[in-house]
């Protein structure tokens, strides 16, 4: 008797997980979680711009991050692979899901799904392009008008004085908020963490952390444009 279909399964054990849609969602959730924690850390670091001696504080912070090149690159590679895995897996799921319904409805009315969840395929790609721009703008400096190595305060203020650049940041960070409103909650659900008692708690955590991240990040270019930050720089 073929009672152990697991043995029959064509999928090799270690790959089996990834080959199923649920396994893929796990990958998306885990990489998403890592990227989420990174964005929180990143924002907290950047918020040092509101300290009285912001230029010095940010420079010291940059020095700290660059203290060990090996560690820095390890983290960078780690983040990069998370980012790539996150995007590639989603792309695969996107194709799977498109194939699952080749003919759409003449009418389709959403019910319980949130606006954020329905726009993941919009907010995601925007964030993808944002990350590319952001790296070239403030990490490599190639799209920055006056990039100065290891002076983040200068780079931020000068960079954000360009209204178009700032506008893109504001849009992208709004998208980040939207993305995470669904993404963070979804992460718990995909990893199997849902319970009637905590469902609202997890939902609220997702919404609040997404909003905080979004507002915290948006505040910087806005404050630069309003002249609240960077009065000391010409």
């Amino acid at each position: 008797m073929a009672s152990t279909a697991v043995a029959n399964s064509k999928l090799h054990q270690s790959l089996a997980l990834y080959q199923t849609a649920i396994g893929k969602k796990y990958v998306v959730a885990v990489t998403g979680a890592i990227l989420f924690f990174f964005t929180i850390g990143h924002m907290l670091g950047n918020l040092q711009i509101y300290l009285p001696n912001a230029q010095e504080a940010l420079a010291n912070y940059a020095k700290l991050l660059h203290a060990s090149a090996e560690l820095l690159w390890a983290v960078r590679l780690g983040l990069l692979s998370c980012f790539v895995l996150h995007v590639v897996t989603i792309a695969q799921l996107y194709n799977l899901n498109r194939a699952a319904r080749p003919q759409g409805y003449v009418r389709k009315t959403p019910t319980l799904s949130t606006y954020a969840s329905r726009t993941m395929y919009l907010s995601g790609p925007i964030l993808f392009f944002f990350v590319l721009y952001h790296l070239s703008h403030l990490t490599l400096g190639s799209t920055h008008p006056r990039y100065v190595e290891m002076d983040p305060y200068h780079n931020l203020v000068i960079g954000f004085r360009q209204p178009l650049a700032s506008l893109f940041y504001v849009i992208a960070m709004s998208m980040l908020g939207l993305h995470l409103t669904h993404g963070v909650w979804s992460m718990f659900q995909s990893m199997g963490l849902n319970h009637p008692k905590y469902r609202n708690l997890l939902r609220n955590f997702a919404t609040i952390s997404a909003a905080a991240l979004s507002i915290g990040n948006i505040s910087i270019p806005v404050c630069v444009l309003l002249g609240i930050i960077g009065k000391d720089l010409v």
Binding site: N97, T111, T114
Partner: peptide, 14 residues
């Protein structure tokens, strides 16, 4: 050939 769950809750609603 079913698609994947993206946790949108449309199923629960209907």
């Amino acid at each position: 050939l079913f698609g994947s769950c993206t946790n949108m809750q449309e199923c629960e609603a209907t």
